[in-house]
Design a protein around this nucleic acid. Structure first.
Length: 710
RNA sequence: GGCGGGGUAGCUCAGUCGGUUAGAGCUGCGGAUUCAUAAUCCGUGUGUCGGCGGUUCAAGUCCGCCCCUCGCUACCA
């Protein structure tokens, strides 16, 4: 029996779990469940990544302590993962005593070994907020191209990068004050000293070949020592012997894997040292997204090694999730949270769909919702569940639920099913789930062909053929049982329902070797419903952004440089699109909520305002939009500009019959936006938070359609 | 700008060291069947393998240039 420890990356404690996180946790969970099914001891650990500036700032904005914020998010994350049947052995938090002690130990051991050095660093400091500003918390004019309002690290317009202190007219993203330069002492981990170690670790087979190539690129470019300290105020662990200095969140985040293990060890009475201090007791594997490769394949093994801990056996990297071919983004309406999905759809649909598309490589994975419906329905309901559905009835009605006394001659079909298990196991173990699913579906096809060829419905009409009927259905249910064993890692709940129906104890991989004989099954009931396309449509609607923000996103895109650097919204999706701990710890403003209503948006000059062509418009018609529950289709009379068609997300607030004849305000020069229902040629203005609370703007009487508003 | 990954049938993807008429699943279409959640079974694909050029007896598969796309990168992890 192997002893295996598995982790998936730590989700950041600021933000919800979304379908991108789930690529990773589902991939990991399938692997873990498979190993358990094989009879190995396999433990799955994860935690929330809680420290860093974004959490601190958000807590401040919500008026609560970071600890309270982190606790609340922890509960949300746990419930989301649970909803998708992710079975952790422990889901912990990096803001724990275990994590503090381990972080200190990792640091002190490294310091003892001479792997820590101290340097002075000049940084932007905001005197009003009393803190050093991470790159993404400084905004200003790009030193290269002069573009306004750029982040401290990179320009979205010219895609150049720069030092935060080089920004022209810099200001604090929190309060708007100009930051000052201030020098501070920082602690650096001597990553450069670990190059030989890292190179040999990589060659030990710890990485997929394409990722090893990526690391070679980095080696060629030259490693840099790693700044592991941050000045207070900072939500994190204070560094020993260095008052006011804190561990950078990315130092203690992966240590959370160990902390989670430790907490579990205490609970279960297991020996932590045997797991993390020696590498002969347990294999260790990390599942991560490609965005956090750097941390897990350079810093992490190096800090572990430098501190005298064991290093992971392998790091398995997956790609990003796209939705309908596009990166996840709120403005595109492709940003789907775990919660939103669970409100309308069965989690096992998604588990299967992901499994059907996951490989051992780092390719991105596309969730194509049309494909999703077809595939799940066809494979799971049409093929697999159908086998049971079409044979159980006969067993129940004709044989009182009893299978044949001895497993009948099936021409070697069952033997082939059993034998295929070896290859399927190899595919699971190698994370080639897509190939495993294909192999299983081929078996399902065979089973259906078998039933077809034996035509039980014909046998049923002839009393003399009763034995043949009994044999046929016994075989079909046996084949079905084997298929469900193979699918259990992916579909644990369906497998459970099948076991209830077949009246079987929990499956093991070995259980496939022993056919059911003289066994009484329970009554068959629907094991799985088909995906309802209406539900998928409902999901799309629920994540669809309001028309206004579509237009905004569109306008933003239009003004962006050709190589479209991420806009604020996109940045967020990018950060969260893949995995977990991801970009989060790198203090990105992406996790700071929109400005509170008490603060105005960024100041603009009159010229910028002048670019917006606001017009008085008369609403001619207002109609409901088929298939959309928030939209109204308006036709507007805009005087000299003629008539315009606009889709407005105001349906919940404005009964369409109250609108015709009314005057309102139109943004006339907004870039037209193609929507599923037609093209929207502008946007009408309304105030309020949305939903039913929306108030359409009107001009005073006397205004006439087409008048410019200024 | 540099580097890297992609671009193969309506959709999602395979295509090993270059080699017979480029494949699979799903969809669509035609037929069969009716036990089954309108499920199943049989049959059915004339795709400029992103574009152009080159190497070769032979290229989706190698080389060059270009286009599109995603990502990495410029003391930043």
């Amino acid at each position: 029996m192997r002893r295996i420890l598995v982790t998936s990356a730590l989700p950041y404690a600021n933000g919800q779990i979304h379908l991108g996180h789930l690529v990773e946790t589902i991939q990991t969970d399938i692997w873990v469940r498979f190993q358990k099914l094989q009879g190995h001891e396999c433990r799955y650990f994860c935690a929330d990544d809680t420290h860093g500036t974004p959490v601190m700032i958000r807590a401040r904005q919500e008026g609560i302590t970071p600890e309270a914020l982190v606790e609340r998010i922890h509960a949300e994350h746990l419930s989301d993962f649970d909803g998708f049947h992710i079975e952790f052995d422990n889901y912990y938090t990096t803001n724990s005593q275990e994590n503090r002690l381990l972080s200190e130990e990792v640091y002190l051991n490294n310091r003892q070994a001479g792997n820590i050095r101290v340097s002075q660093v000049r940084q932007a400091y905001c005197e009003r907020d009393g803190m050093f500003l991470p790159d993404r918390f400084i905004r200003g004019r790009c030193p290269a191209c002069g573009a306004e309002d750029q982040y401290g690290d990179a320009c979205e317009v010219c895609s150049g990068s720069h030092a935060p202190l080089d920004l022209k007219e810099p200001r604090c993203a929190l309060c708007g004050d100009a930051p000052v330069e201030r020098e501070s002492e920082h602690f650096f981990f001597r990553l450069t000293a670990f190059e030989p170690f890292l190179k040999s670790w990589i060659r030990s087979g710890a990485l997929q070949p394409e990722m090893a190539n990526k690391l070679d690129e980095w080696f060629e470019a030259g490693l840099q020592d790693w700044d592991i300290s941050r000045d207070g105020p900072y939500f994190g662990f204070e560094i020993p012997d260095a008052p006011g200095k804190y561990f950078y969140v990315w130092l203690d985040a992966p240590i959370g894997y160990m902390a989670s293990t430790w907490a579990w060890c205490k609970r279960e009475g297991r020996d932590f040292d045997a797991i993390w201090r020696r590498d002969d007791q347990m294999e260790v594997y990390h599942f991560i997204g490609k965005d956090i490769l750097y941390f897990h394949t350079l810093f992490w093994p190096a800090t572990l090694h430098g501190a005298g801990f064991r290093v992971p056996n392998a790091v398995y990297v997956h790609g990003f999730l796209t939705v309908n071919g596009q990166k996840m983004s709120k403005s595109r309406g492709t940003f789907i949270t775990a919660r939103q999905y669970l409100e309308v759809l069965d989690p096992e649909y998604l588990r299967y769909y992901y499994a059907a598309k996951l490989t051992a490589r780092v390719d991105d994975l596309d969730l194509n919702l049309d494909d999703f419906i077809l595939r799940v329905n066809s494979d799971l309901v049409g093929k697999v569940v159908n086998i049971a559905s079409r044979s159980a009835g006969f067993i129940q009605k004709r044989f009182e639920g009893l299978l044949c006394e001895r497993y009948p001659d099936d021409g070697g079909l069952r033997d082939r099913f059993v034998a295929a298990g070896d290859e399927i196991a190899t595919l699971y173990a190698g994370r080639e789930y897509a190939k495993a699913m294909r192999a299983i579906m081929q078996l399902a096809d065979e089973a259906n062909r078998y039933v077809e060829a034996r035509a039980p419905w014909t046998l049923a009409k002839d009393p003399d053929q009763s034995d043949a009927l009994h044999a046929t259905c016994t075989v079909a249910l046996e084949l079905f049982r084997i298929l469900m064993i193979y699918l259990q890692p992916v579909l644990p709940k369906l497998a459970e329902r099948c076991r209830d129906f077949l009246r079987l104890p929990p499956f093991t991989w070995e259980a496939r070797l022993h056919p059911l004989q003289a066994h009484r099954i329970g009554a068959f009931s629907h094991l799985m419903e088909r995906v309802d396309p209406k539900k998928v449509e409902q999901l799309i609607q629920s994540v669809a952004p309001p028309v206004e923000s579509i237009a905004q996103a569109n306008a933003k895109t239009a003004t962006k440089a050709k190589k479209a650097p991420p806009c604020a919204v996109d940045t967020e999706s990018k950060a969260t699109a893949s995995a977990p701990a991801a970009s989060a710890p790198n203090p990105a403003p992406t996790h700071v909520p929109a400005p509170s209503p008490a603060v105005t948006a960024e100041t603009i000059d009159i010229e910028t305002f002048g670019k917006i062509d606001l017009r008085v418009a008369r609403i001619l018609t207002a109609s409901l939009v088929e298939g959309a529950d928030k939209l109204l289709c308006l036709t507007l009379d805009v005087g000299e500009l003629g008539e315009k068609t606009v889709f407005a997300g105001i349906r919940q607030a404005c009964p369409p019959d109250t609108l015709p004849g009314r005057l309102t305000v139109l943004v006339a020069n907004l870039q037209p936006r193609k929507m599923r229902f037609g093209t929207s040629e502008g946007m009408v203005l309304a105030a309020g938070p949305g939903g039913k609370e929306l108030y359409l703007l009107s001009p005073d009487s006397g205004a006439t359609p087409g008048m410019r508003i200024r």
